[in-house]
Amino acid sequence: MNDSLLEIRDLHLEFHTFEGVAKVLAGVNLQLRRGEFLGLVGETGCGKSMTALAIPRLIPIPPGRITRGEVIFEGKDLLQLNDKGIESFRARELGYVFQDPVTNLNPMFSIREQLIDAVVYQSDANGRKPAGQRRRPASSRQKRRDAFQRSIELLHMVGIPDADRRIHDYPHQFSGGMRQRVLIAMALAGEPKLLIADEPTTALDVTIQAQILRLIQELGRKMGLSVLLITHNLGVVAKICDRVAVMYSGRVIETAPVRDLFNQPLHPYTQGLLKALPHAQSERGGLEGIPGHIPDLISPPAGCRFHPRCAHVMDHCREVVPPVSRKTAEHHVFCHLFDETEEYGHAR
């Protein structure tokens, strides 16, 4: 599809550990379209964050190793870029917001210093000056002065009150929610096309969580960003995402528009996940879980990695990795139960 901004194809990632080789990602397929919010959900350890980190190549490469696959961004494979190329991709096209705002800002430098660097390097890479500045080649001091103005605007944009004073403060003088706003400002300083938000609200108070999500939603829509939102909170997905991809043990097992996924989950794992949601209306009886455990990544089950926990398991689930089945053009599932309902033919 040509409205695709980012496409991950058959991505395999291993980690070399003392106990052996952990097959962290085993053929991830994921597509992110221009201007859409895609939720990436799954349990802890299923590879959501690793998938996201692999996009801008932020995975530490000795223990980690990408053995197969492509990450296509606007037609180029990011995995093939040299160091300079990937650095400029990060500066120009990408904003990344991480989980913990406390550890993600450098405690030794003022917000001003960190924001100015973000603005300077992102606008340098873009070959464009911070909005509305003069055209003659700017000295580096002039550049930093312009970037300072732009930084204050960015802080206003993410809703920091009193930004022109607070910009001189240090991270420890900000609350967690405020720090996350600053990090969002840094991520968006270069007007990227892609925003990856890796559990951006997990470390925050519940009341602040909603504010930060709303901020991401508003800014994302306003700037026409494609957003990859990683979360284990399906409620968040339902609220702000257009589509959702469910991961299980290193693979994407189902992708669908949000409404379809909630109304008609196909993969037995997705069904279990939705049943495990607490409902306000539901009668008491507590929560329902999925029996079994997350598989060991060093010696994962052959075939479909969910088969040991699956109620509908068939013989060939234990041997063959399920290919994609397209329930509709938009609703894809990787499960042998749907092999025969195949209507649209295999993709590649």
Binding site: E87, F98, A125
Partner: peptide, 24 residues
């Protein structure tokens, strides 16, 4: 973790090391 953030922003590696990491 702040180093990863700085990398995700696209700040050149040499500057990250000589300015941010060194000071920490």
């Amino acid at each position: 973790e702040s180093v990863r953030t700085e990398r995700s922003i696209g700040i050149p590696w040499a500057l990250i090391v000589m300015k941010y990491v060194l000071r920490n």
